[in-house]
Design a binder for these strands. Structure first.
Lengths: 348, 348
DNA sequence: TTTAGCACTCCCACTCTTTGAGTGCTAAGT
DNA sequence: ACTTAGCACTCAAAGAGTGGGAGTGCTAAA
């Protein structure tokens, strides 16, 4: 596996990404940085095919990269094109400045990515592992009707309405609020568990049975807190890619199956995953490129794109890297408590 | 325009809906309830074409209905097939009983519709015109950070975090809460307007300038309240319809442009709208069938499907009618205040 | 007014052919 | 030992011709 073969592999992938057509030996031989004849390239390509990096759609066609070929290309061969100052400037403009609300910042980044890459943008906020419950309130709002309010240190606010069997008097409400504050204040979101709430139900019931719906409500709210949010925007772009199955794309748009987990388990730094390498998300021949952004020194979420296997990695990866860095920078402001997530109210 | 011609039109539409192919004179003549020869039918069909109810894809093909043809069929000609007891029973099972939470009821109905019709189900809740603000709370939750809670008589709960320039002391908070309660309590959602909040900002600023973000926050929340919610589920089904443009379908799935307004402006009773008759929703050759459901004596929302023009109206319409009636029945329970909508918390 | 008969139209599916890009192999050149 | 030119071969895609069939409109008779 000499360096010329690698160079040829890189060239094939580049050309295939550029044109979308199987690339032949002749096309490669015409490239500036390749100085051997088509026949030589044919021999090398045959070797690369044997090694599993290239394949032929049919006998008399050019070669296209296999998954392994893409993988090698991305990990070793391509050299990403650095962003020009104009490009950076353009991104900065699309993104917004220090005074842009965080949520909008993320939205803008997603919009920028869809526009530039013509792929679907993916955005998540990480599960806020390290945030803790900072406030719990129970507010009477009607006969036998109470609203629970749960606020965390990272600024999530969740609410939920609960109907009780009886109305609570002042003392009872006081008791409950105190009890809950004492047991939940400062508890990290990650620690919250159903068992914990079961215990609380037991304890509270000893005082007054009909309080338990409130605890159940809290339990449900805490589940919401642990839920990750995932937004895919611009997914209509994926429909224009004829290498993707339209059916699969739409099913994905509706359900986003498994993607959240997949994003959660990525490491820091830029990541490229192929649909073939994971069964978490189900668009065949698609590729996920993401990077995490941080808020202060904590992971706050991921940003990236989903596109066909044949996306311009060389160009897109620097964009995503730049955006996540910039976002991390803009978010590492002075405030320690900022609101991002949203809440649901629900009856039962 | 004699009754035989109408009968033939109805037969053509029925056949076309059944087969999806242009239907010829011979096919019609073979039907049980038609007792004239193919030649006669040909003559009638020619007339129906001149009148604009039928058209030919090309010279030597059968006929397919035009928009006007469908319209006439739906409004006058078809006779919907009544639901059998088994079908009703099946729907009841899918829907749930009195004890099913309202939100789930609606979800189940949508799921049932997608399954039965193989089309996308559409669900909205109507703008709650007649509900009034029942409670406003301002809760301090951190340094200079306040959560506003807005609750309406129909049970919506919205919250939002606001950051102020200065912390409020007890007296100031008291003042603000009182002022707001006095001005908003009992005001109907429909009456809330930006001008109203502008006036309040002015009034409040006279007392203390830095309170205005709270009023702005309330203003934004009130906008949320007036927002209608719209859910389209099972839209992947639309991708299997080859009479619909896949591109348009996906763009619709992402944006649902205009559909909310369209649904809001429909009357009670079952409604069928063609995409050609409105520019509110942009899937060509599609058809929207909806009916409103009620809660008590107020319109509470709409339920229906979006499918290709060529859907089995005769079969589907009774389903939708039955479902909305049943939902209305199940929802007209004893409670006068029930929670349905959801809320967002946001920083700025 | 209805019907049978007939010539006509035009899509569709099928086959056959051509074209051209690309390959692998071989033999000669460096 | 590696590289290159030449050549025969393969195969998909695009085009050209063909026949069949479904359906029509028209006419003339019942």
């Amino acid at each position: 596996m000499n360096s010329r073969k690698l160079k040829i592999l890189a060239a094939v992938v580049d050309e295939y990404i550029r044109t979308g057509e199987p690339v032949g030996s002749k096309a490669i031989s015409k490239l500036d940085n390749i100085n051997v004849s088509a026949a030589t390239i044919r021999n090398d390509m045959a070797t690369l095919e044997q090694l599993g990096y290239l394949e032929q759609p049919h006998t008399s066609a050019g070669r296209i990269p296999t998954f392994a070929g893409y993988r090698l290309y991305i990990d070793e061969l391509m050299n990403p094109s650095a962003l020009s100052d104009e490009e950076k400037c353009r991104l900065d403009k699309m993104l917004g400045g220090k005074d842009t609300p965080e949520e909008l910042l993320i939205q803008n980044a997603a919009a920028a990515l869809t526009e530039i890459t013509q792929c679907a943008a993916v955005v998540t906020n990480s599960v806020p592992r390290f945030s803790v419950i900072s406030k719990v309130e129970v507010i009477p709002t009607g006969k036998r009707l109470y609203v629970i309010l749960l606020i965390t240190s990272n600024g999530s606010i969740k609410n939920k309405a609960c109907r009780l069997e009886f109305d609570l008097n002042h003392e009872q409400l006081e008791f409950f609020t105190h009890y809950i504050e004492e047991n939940l204040s400062g508890v990290s979101v990650e620690e919250l568990s159903e068992e914990m709430f079961d215990k609380m139900v037991a304890a509270v019931s000893a005082y007054m049975v009909s309080l338990s719906p409130l605890v159940m409500g809290l339990c449900e709210l805490s589940e919401d807190l642990r839920q990750q949010e995932l937004t895919v925007s611009g997914s209509e772009k994926l429909l224009s890619c004829d290498e993707l199955d339209k059916m699969e794309v739409v099913r994905f748009i509706e359900h986003k199956n498994g993607l959240a987990d997949l994003l959660e388990e990525t490491f820091s730094g830029i990541q490229v995953k192929f649909s073939s390498e994971t069964d978490s998300f189900a668009i065949g021949n698609s590729s996920l490129i993401v990077s995490k952004y941080r808020k202060g020194n904590k992971e706050a979420g991921s940003l990236g794109i989903i596109g066909p296997m044949r996306v311009d990695y060389k160009k897109i990866i620097p964009y995503i890297e730049y955006l996540t860095q910039k976002i991390s920078y803009l978010m590492s402001g002075d405030d320690e408590d900022i609101i991002v997530t949203d809440t649901t109210a629900d009856t039962d």
